[in-house]
């Protein structure tokens, strides 16, 4: 087994809002190995972004509040670090890529300057070396005429180009970990395919560990080594990618896969998951999927399921053995 670069234990994050307390992340634990590609899937509001942003204190605090948890990165616990030290890690040893590049790129600074600034802040490179490196980076992420493109402002580029620039910035300081939050969701499908292909190539070349957040189970199927499925602020299932898609053991994962139409198959009946996603304003008692779950037993409504290890690396938070319908 390879080295663990990031080890998150029992993370809890909540938001104190006018409507009440939003229980956004309710005990998330996972680890990330060097060079590994970890997919994180889940629907809107399941806590994917808040989990990852909590690690680097990128959530607004207040109203946000990390009430428990550890995130061990090398010798440090990120949760206990001050903002100063975290700023050094952000963009240095951990790179972040967001869904909408327009909100994270500065509109009045050229992309070249934005890349060199990241380099100058986190490394002791000279200005001219940083400039050369910036052009190399654009080239690396597949932007033609890289040297010319450095002079562009973000609005002079297409959405796909801007997302490539974001990847270049995230890669700038050769990070150990890149966290990509829905990096292709806003893009057209042919442009998404370009970006994914680029990421595939880079992965082979660079060996950086990647956490890729998405609500599209198909996007990570061909990319990830391992996948976490989130629901109601918890990880409900974790498995190696081939196991998750061929042998899903949480009713939510199964439901999700069953509700997906397939490009490569004729119209089979879509099995919809009835009901609505959980209201995070009430602290979950029992399993938060229970109201929508066709397998639910009494225990599901009163006791939060712990993790059952089904095989090495395959764990599921569910009281019921789906194959027998019996309690675990």
């Amino acid at each position: 087994m390879t080295d663990v670069v990031l080890d998150v234990e029992d993370l809890h994050t909540r938001f104190l809002t006018a409507d009440g307390v939003v229980h956004a992340v309710n005990g998330v634990s996972f680890d990330l190995h060097a060079g590994e590609f970890l997919g994180v899937v889940g629907e809107s509001g399941s806590g994917k972004s808040v989990t990852m942003m909590s690690l680097l204190k990128l959530i607004p605090m207040p109203p946000g509040e990390i009430t428990a948890g550890e995130a061990n990165f090398g010798d440090d616990n990120l949760i206990e670090m001050d903002h100063e030290a975290l700023r050094d890690i952000r963009g240095g040893r951990i790179g972040f890529i967001f869904q909408d590049p327009m909100t994270s790129l500065n509109p009045v600074i050229t992309v070249g300057k934005q890349i060199t600034e990241a380099l100058l802040e986190h490394t002791d490179m000279s200005k001219s070396a940083a400039k050369t490196r910036a052009a190399d980076l654009l080239d690396l992420v597949g932007i033609p005429d890289a040297a010319q493109r450095l002079k562009n402002y973000p609005h002079e580029m297409s959405g796909g180009m801007r997302q490539r620039v974001m990847i270049a910035i995230a890669l700038a300081c050769s990070p150990e970990v890149i966290i990509a939050d829905e990096p292709t969701t806003a893009l057209d499908v042919t442009i998404q395919a370009q970006i994914i292909e680029q990421v595939r190539k880079l992965r082979e070349e660079l060996g950086t560990a990647v956490i890729w957040i998405t609500h599209d189970l198909a996007v990570v199927a061909g990319l990830a080594d391992r996948v976490l499925v989130m629901y109601g602020g918890r990880i409900v299932e974790e498995a190696k990618v081939d196991v998750l898609y061929s042998n899903p053991q949480h009713p939510y994962t199964r439901g999700l896969l069953g509700s997906l139409p397939r490009l490569d198959q004729k119209g089979h009946e879509l099995t919809s998951i009835e009901g609505q996603p959980p209201n995070l304003l009430t602290k979950p008692v029992g399993c938060s999927f229970a109201p929508r779950c066709e397998f639910a037993i009494d225990k599901c409504r009163t006791e939060m399921p712990d993790y059952y290890e089904l095989a090495i690396g395959h764990r599921v938070a569910c009281h019921v053995n789906l194959d027998t319908g019996e309690p675990r």
Partner: peptide
């Protein structure tokens, strides 16, 4: 069609892709 990912890791890794 080639750009649309499939929710199946085995097929995804076997696919021939035309990237525009």
């Amino acid at each position: 069609q080639s750009a649309v990912p499939l929710p199946d890791p085995i097929l995804e890794n076997m696919r021939d892709r035309t990237i525009l």
